[in-house]
């Protein structure tokens, strides 16, 4: 039996220890904002945070989660008020939108370590997240918008609705 938290809620799991977190989130607790894209850690569509760091949930086995804190897009802010979500809306970044939750989770993690990322920082942090629609230039813009808005808005207030981060 593994115990852990997802978006602030305590969870228990005693199924296949090798099952990726991705399928637990999607099939078992119906948090479908986290997407399947490749199953091999190649595209970033399934990005979530484990203990605050961005990971590929398709490569994160359930047995690795004991005592960990998981945050998904649903836990970032249910109402879309997180500054990164706001920035995404401001620049109309998504096209089909499928990869965007993974992109947002990756961008949030980037901004935590680099509040004012350079283009090189953005390339380096975001290169694992594929967008087939080709929204990269808007993603880059949105990250910069979020970086500027975050410095203006107190972090605690902006992330109030979030889970454990």
């Amino acid at each position: 039996m593994i115990t852990f938290k997802v978006n602030g809620v305590a969870r228990k799991f005693d199924g296949d220890p090798e099952m990726p977190l991705l399928w637990y989130l999607r099939d078992e607790i119906e948090l479908t904002g986290t997407k399947y894209g490749c199953g091999e850690g190649l595209c970033g569509a399934c990005t979530v945070h484990v203990n605050g760091s961005a990971v590929r949930s398709c490569q994160t086995q359930m047995q690795s989660l004991a005592g960990k804190v998981v945050t998904t897009i649903e836990g970032l802010s249910a109402t879309g008020t997180h500054p990164v979500q706001q920035a995404w809306k401001q620049v109309n970044a998504p096209q089909c939108g499928y990869c965007q939750t993974g992109q947002i989770m990756q961008a949030v993690a980037l901004l935590k370590t680099k509040p004012k990322p350079t283009d090189a920082d953005i390339d380096s942090a975001m290169k694992g997240n594929i967008c087939r629609c080709g929204t990269y230039q808007r993603i880059r813009e949105a990250i910069k918008v979020a970086a500027n808005s975050k410095s203006a808005a107190p972090k605690a207030a902006a992330q109030k609705a979030g889970g454990d981060e």
Partner: peptide
């Protein structure tokens, strides 16, 4: 003009329902 798409709010919060959902 440039009206925002109706689904953008759902997309950035993970609430949009795709085929896989």
């Amino acid at each position: 003009k440039s009206l925002p798409t109706v689904d953008i709010g759902d997309i950035v919060t993970g609430k949009g329902t795709f085929g896989i959902d």
